[in-house]
Amino acid sequence: MSSTESNAPKLGENDPIKVLFDMASYWATIWGFIALCLWLEHEVLNRLDIEPGSIQVVILLVSTPAIFLVTVTRIEKNPKARLILERARYVVVLVAAALLGAYLHANHKDESYESALRDGAVLACAKIAACKAAATDYANTR
């Protein structure tokens, strides 16, 4: 009779990668929720025509922790909400990774030797008529 269990090794609870991921997802979820609360409250205050300044900052400093604590208390009491939060942690990590990747891509300055060679080759090819024509022909046929 064949076993239905997987032969893959199982990760222990003390696996450093799992622990690191759990900690990162936990804190990313907390800070993401706090940022979402702040943004929503800021939008509500702007729609109520409360001018930005010290009054708005005081309101945000008081209401954000209160909303956070009330929400955490309710999530702890509701098993379905806890399950949703556990699953949302993975989405938060994926969104954070995507945002970090987009930021790094937008701000990447490639100053490597290979990049300088490539740029030099492009500039040289642009000055040589036959090379430019071949590159244009190649680009048009792709």
Results as ranks from 00 to 15, higher is better:
L45M: 00
L99F: 09
P79F: 08
I55G: 04
S6I: 03
S3K: 14
P65W: 10
L99I: 07
E51V: 06
Y113D: 04
I55Y: 06
L117D: 10
A116D: 04
T29S: 12
L11K: 13
H105S: 12
V44P: 00
A8W: 07
T136G: 04
A135F: 12
E13D: 12
A139F: 01
I75V: 07
V19F: 03
H105E: 14
K10P: 00
A98M: 08
A8Q: 11
V93C: 00
R74H: 08
R118Y: 05
F68H: 15
R142G: 13
E76W: 02
L11Q: 10
L123A: 10
I67L: 02
K77E: 07
D15I: 02
S6T: 02
I34P: 03
P16K: 00
C131Y: 01
A116W: 03
L11P: 04
W31Q: 15
E111Y: 02
E86V: 08
P65D: 04
N7E: 15
D15T: 01
K80I: 06
Q56K: 15
P65I: 12
I55L: 06
L99N: 09
D15A: 04
S112L: 00
S115K: 08
A88Q: 08
P9F: 00
A139C: 12
L83T: 08
H108Q: 08
Y26S: 08
S3F: 08
